[in-house]
Every structure is written in C-alpha cells, then in structure tokens.
Design a protein around this nucleic acid. Structure first.
Lengths: 222, 222
DNA sequence: AAATATAATTGAGCGGTATTCAAAAATGGC
DNA sequence: GCCATTTTTGAATACCGCTCAATTATATTT
C-alpha cells in the first residue's frame, strides 16, 4: 500500500514536472499569447476605445489583474498585438522576392505581397492601420522599428532600379516608396472597415500601370 | 422718478432685445462655436482619448452639462469639429482651379492645394487624419459626405483628362484618385505627428513627376 | 512528505471620466 | 412684473482602467 502510494506520487511528480516544463517552454508564453490573441480579436472587432480589459480577460480566460502582469497598460497591450506580424513582415517579403529579376518586377511583387498579406491578416491590418499607425507613440514603438526594415527594403529596390537604369533617375525614391505604401493603405481602409473582399490581381495591375507608366500620353512626354 | 425708471427699463429691454437678437444670430451659434473651437484646440493637442470633457468645458467657459445640450456625446463633438472645413474644402479647391487649363495642370494644382491646406489648417488635418478617418462611424458622418464632393471633383478632372486625350485611356480613375489622396495622407502623417514644416513645392514636383511620367524609362515602355 | 519560500493569479476596491438629470437660472411673452 | 419655457448647471451615477492585499499554485529544502 505504502509502495503503491509512493509510486503514485512519483508518477504525479513526473507528470507535474513535465507539465511544468511544458508550461515553461510554451504555456508561460501561451498565457501571454492567449491574452494577445484575445486582444487582437476584440480590438479589431470593437476598436481600442470600445474594448474593455474585462472583455479581453474573459475571452482569454484569465483575471483582469493577470493582464497587468504581462502588459504595462491597455495601450501597451494594443501595441504588443501586431509585434509578431511586423517581425515576419520583411522576412516574408524577402522570401517572396527570391528569384525575381528587375526592380519593376520586384515592385509589382511587393505590391501584390502587401495586398495579399492585408487580405490574409485582416485583424492585424485593421489594428495597424486604423488604431496604431496614427498615434504619436507608434513612432517610438517596436512595431515601427520592425516595419522600417520593410520600408527600407522597398527603398533599396527602388534605388537599385535607378542604379541599374531600369527606373528613371530623376525620381525621389522616398516619394515613390510613400506613394506605394500610401496608395495601398488608402485603398485598404474601406475594405477593412466594411469587410469587403479585395480584388488583388486587378488592383496590382491598375496600380502598377500608373506607377510604371504614369498618366501622360507617351507622345506628349517627348 | 417713475418716468425715469420706466425709461431705464425701456433701455434695458432694448439692450436685452439687441443682445437677444445678437445671440440668436450669432451668439447662440457662438456658444456652440466656442465649444467647437475649444474642442478643436484640445483634441488636436492631446488627442481624443487624453482629452476630457471637463477640459473642453473649462476652455469654452461652460459647464460640462452644457456640452451635452449641443452634442450627443464626446465622439459626436469630435466629428462636429471639422465639419465647417469639409464644407469649404471642395469650394476652395474649385476656386483655386479657376482659369487652369488641362487635366495635368489641374491635378498638379489639386496636389498643391491640398498640401497647402494641410499646412495652414494643421489642427483640422491632425483631427481628420489621426482621429476621425479611423472609425467606421466616419463613413456615416457629414464630414465624409462633404469630402466626397472633393473626392468626386478629382475623379471628374481625371475623367475629363482621359476624354480630352490628355491622360492615357487605360488607367483606372479611382486608383489614380486614391494614389493622389493616399500619397498625400501617407506623407503627411509624420509631419502632423512631429509638427515639422512641409516643403510643399518640392513635394508637388516629386509627386507629379511620378504620377505623370511613371518610373519606367521611356525607351523601355515602347 | 512536510515545511517553507517564491511566484503567479485573483478580484474587490480606488480614482477618474463620460454622461445624466433634477434643480436653478435665464429668457420670452403677456 | 409674473408665469411659461428654455437654457444652464454641477452633483450624482455608472463604468472602466488599473492597483494591491490576499489567495493559490509552484519550487525548493529538509
């Protein structure tokens, strides 16, 4: 009897240990991640102001106080939500660009990639464009730092295009980059707000048409 | 004595009447306008969330409750602030376009006009871009309705340019409009947030360069 | 296995803010 | 000058972000 009890306890301890290890490796993060996942969903659905901490806590299955163990405050939690996305962003883009030759082909791909990312990560995009990118705090955030890599990637492509003689030399690369990003963002807002579908391929063509060839008739530019 | 008293009352009544008329014509609006002016200043300075109703009430010289006589709630007040601006927007733009011939010249002027309006109406622009354009409510607001006139004006110019053969016929006018508006908005955000100066003339040239001629070398587009 | 120490979690309570509403003040008509 | 109506007020209410003392779970020691 004593023996079997001891064995039981050994087993229990073993399980506890394993559970603990699991918790340390994944679950500890998992609780944080559960909170972030809940926050992403509710923030995107209701907006920052209409979202209550208690709603996030309930969705994540924790007490309100627990949220403040992982995040400084409500805004800090908001900013934490898209961090993972902004990290993979430049990386994904680089992956997609592999094997593509020429600046214009790369720019076309970048535009496609971003629209497609927006389409497949709507909560992230909603938060990023509608809630985060507009506060003064954004420019001090990790998310901004991460996205700057992506932004710089676009800049590099444009500059290489100019260097290689594929892009006219008298354009301002910063403006070109801002045009690409600004156009995509501006077009996306109604979709994000109303949840419409995005006709990506047509859009990419329409945008590239203007960016590559411009509005003026060719015979008038000579 | 009685006479003089009566006279005094007559004078007082006269003054009261005049004051009342003034109030009905201007001051009644004036109290509302005082609240709006206070709100514009504090909202633009502190942002929507950091702004308290009591701060606006104090700045406007009214009690908190009075604000709720004129506006449904805090958000309603925020949306009321830029309404006057959005009304004059299309009107001003039309004025500036008078006497300008050709779609490209008009587009150049539109871009200049908007950047200049942003520069000279920073509080309005900050509220519009950073606070208002985010929410789903914006698309149901009077401000959106008013700005649609401006947006349609741009669309018309582009279509006329296509019809008159000044602009290539295979561009999507909606995309061109969104590129113009999106680019300006995207470029403006850091200025608005950090309060930097806007180098308008250089910007207009850089933007027009790309929109009119595109990135591709001319000899590669043939 | 028990005792102890440490860490994690909880949720009631605090302070502050948007909003309401009954009372007070101002206004308008007679 | 008196009553009816409108406007204004600010104390009271409800709700929310956030804190912290108490509780529970986990880890360590013996």
């Amino acid at each position: 009897m004593t023996k079997s009890v001891v064995k039981m306890n050994d087993v229990q301890n073993e399980i506890k240990k394993i559970a603990t290890n699991l918790k340390n490796n994944k679950d500890e993060g998992s609780k944080k991640r559960r909170i972030i996942a809940a926050a992403e969903q509710i923030f995107a659905q209701k907006g920052f102001f209409e979202t209550t901490i208690s709603a996030i806590a309930k969705e994540a299955g924790v007490a309100e106080g627990t949220i403040y163990e992982y995040f400084e405050n409500k805004k800090d939690l908001l900013y934490a939500v898209p961090e993972q996305n902004t990290i993979e962003y430049a990386d994904f883009a680089l992956n997609h660009l592999q094997g593509i030759k020429g600046a214009t082909n790369k720019i076309r791909k970048i535009i496609w990639f971003q629209l497609d990312y927006f389409r497949t990560h709507r909560n992230y995009t909603k938060l990023m464009i509608l809630e985060i990118r507009r506060g003064p705090d954004y420019f001090k955030s990790k998310a901004y730092e991460n996205l700057k890599l992506y932004s710089d990637l676009i800049l590099t492509i444009i500059r290489e295009g100019i260097r290689d003689g594929e892009i006219v030399s008298d354009v301002n690369p910063y403006i070109v980059r801002d045009m690409i990003l600004g156009t995509i963002e501006h077009i996306s807002i109604p979709w994000l707000v109303f949840g419409r579908e995005i006709p990506i391929d047509d859009l990419v063509e329409d945008i590239c048409k203007v960016i590559f060839s411009g509005l003026s008739l060719k015979d008038m530019t000579f």
